[in-house]
Amino acid sequence: MIKVHVPATSANLCIGYDCLGLALDLYNHFTFEKSDALEITGCDPQFQNEDNLVVVAFKRVCQYLKVDFPSFHLHIDAQIPVSSGLGSSASCLVAGIAGANAWFEANLDLQSMVTLATQLEGHPDNVAPAILGQASISYFYKDKVISTIVSCHGWHGLVMMPDYQVNTKKARKVIPSSIEHDKACLQVAHALTFMQALQNKDEDKLLASCMDYLHEPYRRQLIKEYDDIHQYCFERNFPMWISGSGPTMMAISIKEENIRNLYLWMKENYPNIQCHFVTIDQKGVSVDYE
């Protein structure tokens, strides 16, 4: 029996559209066992077939390794909410790749796994941190993905999940095709500052760098609670952002008290929004054998 554990992720991190991501200590668990036929349990019946993203990714590794696709029983224990902006789909792709790697004892290196997952996902900001852990910067170069791990720990976070969904295609359509040159320069400066501040636990610089020009000014209109929560956090000098394409939002702080107070404020003002305390996952995808 092979057990694969994949962390949730927060993609974009405000200023890193499609290239920055952060792994969180909320997990999906996947079990692979030998079986006479493909069997999938633990998920909605509509996903209990070969179109399941875990199976799709497993097959992609089979093609890459030039081996036959085996039969197995896949059981999914999902703790990451679906279509919430926390990398649920990415976790399935990563699980399929890691599961196949373990099944065939292929010893794929992490960067190859990131590349395979990105080829399926389309962009690396969710799959890279799910594989690598911590925070990561990733982009395509020629036919592979280049990833850099940014070591970070000690941050306390709160993910805030409204009780509705934001369609990813709609969220991409609201983004303009170009921005002004001066804003592009600021975007680069903010991204560089953000990653160093995250690593150095410099909350003041992290807050100052959380000013995006690529997607948040346009996607915020799709999340009706965004402006109020954003104002609360920034008035108290800690950052928050849209996780992925939303509607989930995330706030982080070095000071646990800030996050605890935000949680209490959310419960009072937005009781219908689910809130979860999180920290930064340190190791990414992991595999156990039984």
Rank of each mutant, 00 (worst) to 15 (best):
A130W: 08
V145Q: 05
V114Y: 11
K201Q: 15
Y213C: 02
L206G: 01
I223H: 00
T118Y: 09
Q221W: 00
A117L: 11
D204Y: 10
A208S: 11
G157K: 02
S209Y: 07
H230P: 01
K183Q: 15
H123S: 03
D143V: 05
D182M: 10
D202Y: 02
N167I: 01
Q231D: 14
G133T: 08
D204V: 09
K170E: 14
R220Q: 15
M161Y: 03
M113I: 14
L110G: 00
C210R: 03
D109I: 10
D228E: 15
A117N: 08
M160W: 01
R172I: 01
D227N: 00
M160D: 03
L110H: 06
K173Q: 14
I223S: 01
Y141N: 15
L207Y: 10
H123L: 04
C152G: 08
S138V: 02
P176M: 07
S178C: 13
I149K: 13
L198T: 04
M211D: 15
N167V: 01
S136Q: 06
D228F: 00
Q231M: 09
F140Y: 11
L158E: 02
T118G: 08
A171H: 04
A135R: 00
S151P: 00
C152D: 06
M161T: 12
D109S: 10
Q119V: 08
M195A: 12
Q196T: 12
S178L: 12
H230I: 00
P217F: 01
M160H: 01
K205F: 11
K224V: 13
L207N: 08
V150P: 00
L214K: 03
L116P: 07
H215D: 04
D204T: 10
T115F: 04
E105R: 12
M113L: 14
I149G: 08
M211A: 11
I179N: 10
Q221A: 12
T115D: 05
L214Y: 06
Y213V: 02
S138E: 02
N126W: 05
K183G: 05
Q119I: 10
C185L: 15
L206A: 05
A191T: 12
D204L: 10
I149H: 04
H153Q: 14
Q134M: 12
V174H: 05
F194V: 00
L120R: 04
I137M: 13
H215S: 04
K183P: 06
P162F: 00
D204A: 13
D227M: 00
G133S: 08
I137E: 07
A117H: 07
I179R: 12
